[in-house]
């Protein structure tokens, strides 16, 4: 198949999953076209079967806010026509599914179905914001396919948005060849505890530091904090 994928290319679960999905699909012989404003972080554009199409957003003085949604829709439609895409798969509802809906209408000469995968804050935070609620609900309802990454997310989507269409739960995945145990690496040095996140308050990284202080009362161990975000500074201060 020829598949168009749109995601946020920066750090964050949805972008990582979308990128890994695209790479895995390419390995299985599909042609995968990433359409975004930047090359996704984990994406090697030289991977066979993978193509990257940049979305350029013009920022005229008249536009107080750059119209990314429209630029993305135009690019999606252009890539879909030129590359004869079979479908679009957008990760994170806002604004990607609206752009996909516009692109679908722009490519009226051929059918261009789109799938929206809901990853988390697009439903739990952003989508339920009063400003975004109606358009988020609309774009989900107009999707040709809807998936979520957990049963919890499916329930939240149904509860908050009253979506009546069936929602397919397809869990996130991991490449077990790439991510595998390494006993030798683990056997060296002190015991180590890891935390990985984007350091947003919802991740409660300060709890890592608090809990680690209690661990240290009993075990000679290290805490490794991997990531960056708003709570990095407070976590560092608390640790000190």
């Amino acid at each position: 198949m020829r598949i168009g994928i749109t995601c946020y290319p920066t750090y964050g679960g949805s972008g990582i999953v979308a990128t890994e999905l695209g790479l895995e699909l390419a390995l299985r012989g599909h042609e995968v076209h990433f359409i975004s404003y930047a090359n996704p972080i984990r994406l090697d554009p030289d991977t066979p079967g993978v193509y990257y199409h940049e979305v350029e957003v013009s920022n005229y003085p008249l536009f107080h806010y750059p119209p990314y949604t429209l630029a993305l829709a135009s690019r999606m439609a252009e890539v879909a026509e030129r590359q004869r895409l079979d479908l679009l798969h957008v990760h994170y509802a806002i604004p990607h599914s609206i752009s996909a809906l516009l692109a679908q209408q722009m490519t009226a000469s051929r059918r261009l179905p789109f799938i929206t995968t809901l990853h988390g804050t697009d439903i739990t935070l952003v989508g339920t914001d009063r400003s975004y609620f109606p358009i988020t609900k609309f774009s989900i309802e107009r999707s040709d396919g809807i998936t979520t990454i957990s049963e919890y997310m499916r329930r939240r989507t149904v509860d908050f948005f009253g979506i009546t269409q069936p929602i397919e739960v397809i869990h996130n995945f991991v490449n077990c060849e790439l991510y595998r145990p390494d006993e030798e690496a683990r056997s060296k040095g002190r015991k180590r505890i890891l935390h990985i996140s984007n350091f947003r308050p919802v991740k409660r990284v300060l709890d890592c530091v608090r809990a680690f202080a209690k661990v240290r009362e009993q075990v000679d161990a290290e805490l490794v904090l991997a990531g960056d975000g708003p709570d990095r500074g407070p976590a560092e201060r608390l640790a000190q």
């Binding site: 997310m153 683990r186 505890i193 996140s197 991740k203 809990a211």
Partner: peptide, 22 residues
């Protein structure tokens, strides 16, 4: 990085899935 660790601590208020844990 991850295989050299002994435990992962994920104290989140909420997680849509928990990719780091996986």
């Amino acid at each position: 990085l991850i295989p050299s660790m002994h435990a992962l601590h994920l104290p989140s208020e909420t997680e849509a899935f928990g990719l780091a844990a996986l």
